[in-house]
Write a protein that binds this DNA or RNA. Structure first.
Lengths: 347, 347
DNA sequence: CAGACCGAGTGTAACGATTCACGCCCCCGG
DNA sequence: CCGGGGGCGTGAATCGTTACACTCGGTCTG
């Protein structure tokens, strides 16, 4: 009992069905049957084969299997940032739905880097995944369309589809941006800051659009009423740094800030705290996503809620159903919901 | 220009090297050379082949490629809970290190479910991943050892290795548990609550061990000084519910609570707030991990910090280096660090 | 009793890319 | 003019699995 390796000693190679067949004294076809259609094999034979499998600790070679039979129960997903709870919550939704059908999720994070995103998409395709769920960044839409042209199911996540027959799950971000802005204006603020990411990201562009529309609807001139702060990174440090830049900027400082997501809002709040600016007294803050910790912060964060888990679940569901019954392409759009908390309430 | 599909019309099948070769008027061997050793191909030939590849929008079949050549630049990782920032931060570290060597990460979340974890591990092996990084749950260690026996590199993450030649990256959780307890005792608390997960999880068992050791060192009887609350789930809701149970329990209520991680501490704090129990006045709280939002909560959370990103990075680095130069198995252990904040400071 | 049928198992041709031992051609030096 | 390389390409063998057409006893049916 001093063996350090379980099972028989390997001779440097994985055993194959052939090895199993030889050991069990049957043909490879039978081994394959035991593996895939056990009901078609006599119990005694099956037992012999199973014994041989255990003996050799044989593990199916997925590459060969897939090469021959084409099918693969894997779905790839590319999200913008795996460290953002917004995306991990969606990932959970995807995974749970996929697990129901014995599918597996391959999750990758593009870090908003189109090149990295492209690399992952290519990898997925080379591996022959059944489908892809992606939160596309700028430019990758073409790649996705090309993949779809080659027969890979694609579902856009957190992005409304530009094409009628391309399924997507999204949230009305223009509406969400409007919701936040409307709320801030209702609180009496007349000059707002918008800490936003690159406009090449649809989410950022749309939320901005909502801001501008709302300003216009109230007869406000953006040049007067809006200070836009472009963020270096859509994480806490980016938000922190952006807020510092806002406070240091020339001209009258706004009395309210809308952050493009909760993680950056977290950073912004940190900067405000460190600089001794009171929230919401001197600066009201609104975030976006309503992630897990939003309501537990020093000043609970007003945020625009998105049904993250449900979005992920729905996207996976659409992907699976689409393949299964050739369902028509749906384009689901959820409505965002403003959750008002202390960070934006002056009274 | 009304084609809805980019590229030439597919006849229902992916083009293969053979198709490319035919179109380019060369042999399949040459196509393969263009793909893998472009320097060995004359520029004019290469151009022809590349044109054909574009024309057909050919995509390599990774299964066939790997079947023949064996190698695959993919590493699999299984973490306990993808929605916990502790794990996603580690995942980022892994991914970044892997990207340096053009490796790709396949990330899966076992939800502390051994069966699900086993499924993912088997899947990885069937796919022939180069190595596996895993935060093992109960029982899966055998599976991992078996995989290693079959030639797959394994690195344990957030788990000290039980075997000298099995590499691992971990944090001294006994020490971490002691740190937290020592701190709470130093604050004058004499009766502590410990909101913990299942002891089948090494992290939970070790931190508990640290708690008990420290209690003993101070001459305290656990039966008197410790109230253990088993958590249903290691997430915010679990922590919330656990704290409510604690407050509702019979006997003198402790004046301090140690939560096994920050996410559950978040939930516990939420329950305390909702029930109107002041922190740290009526109940001091300490968490574990020091995740991103710990210092931004209503009452900034005292926590035991772990170098998450670095842990992930190191694990990936060990995996890659091990294969590359047959380096000896290291077992890295990081030291946890107590970060004291308002949630546990009585003065 | 012939023929159909059945369950159980066999053997082999794919699947698509890579590899490798060889050809072929052309140029160069002796 | 011949031998020898080098540079470019060729094409068949191969990886491990699955699908499929097939064999082989034996039992049922009319």
């Amino acid at each position: 009992m001093t063996a350090t390796q379980p099972g028989p000693v390997r001779n440097g190679k994985r055993p194959s069905v052939t090895d199993v067949a030889r050991l069990a004294g049957v043909s490879v076809g039978t081994v394959s049957n035991v593996l895939n259609r056990p009901a078609n094999v006599a119990p005694s034979t099956r037992a012999k084969v199973e014994a041989a499998i255990k003996e050799l600790s044989f593990v199916r070679n997925a590459s060969a299997r897939q090469l021959r039979s084409g099918e693969l129960n894997t779905v790839g997903a590319v999200v913008l940032d795996i460290a953002n709870p917004f995306f991990t919550e969606m990932a959970r939704g995807i995974e749970d739905r996929l697990a129901q059908d014995e599918y597996t999720l391959m999750l990758c994070s593009s870090d908003e880097n189109p090149e990295r995103e492209g690399r992952y998409l290519r990898l997925f395709e080379e591996h022959g995944v059944r489908g892809v769920i992606a939160t596309p960044s700028e430019g990758s839409l073409d790649t996705l369309l090309a993949m779809r042209g080659r027969g890979i199911d694609v579902v856009l996540l957190d992005h409304t589809s530009p094409l009628p027959d391309l399924p997507s799950v999204a949230v009305d971000d223009v509406g969400g941006g409007a919701l936040a802005t409307e709320h801030l204006l209702a609180q009496g603020h007349t000059r707002l800051a918008f800490l936003n990411g690159p406009l090449t990201l649809r989410q950022c562009a749309d939320r901005r659009e909502g801001v501008l529309q709302t300003l216009a609807a109230h007869g406000l001139d953006p040049a007067e009423a809006l200070v836009e702060i472009p963020l270096e990174a859509l994480n806490a440090d980016g938000g922190d740094e952006g807020m510092r830049r806002l406070l240091a900027s020339a001209g009258p400082v706004p009395s309210a800030a809308f952050c493009v997501n909760d993680v950056t809002a977290l950073g912004a709040l940190r900067a405000l705290r460190d600089l001794g600016v009171s929230v919401p007294g001197e600066m009201a803050v609104v975030g976006y996503d309503d992630v897990m910790f939003a309501n537990m912060l020093a000043t609970p964060l007003t945020s625009v809620r998105q049904p993250m888990y449900k979005m992920g679940w729905t996207a996976a569901d659409m992907l699976l159903r689409r393949g299964a019954e050739g369902a028509a392409a749906e384009q689901v759009e959820f409505e965002p919901e403003l959750v008002v908390r202390a960070s934006s309430i002056s009274g």
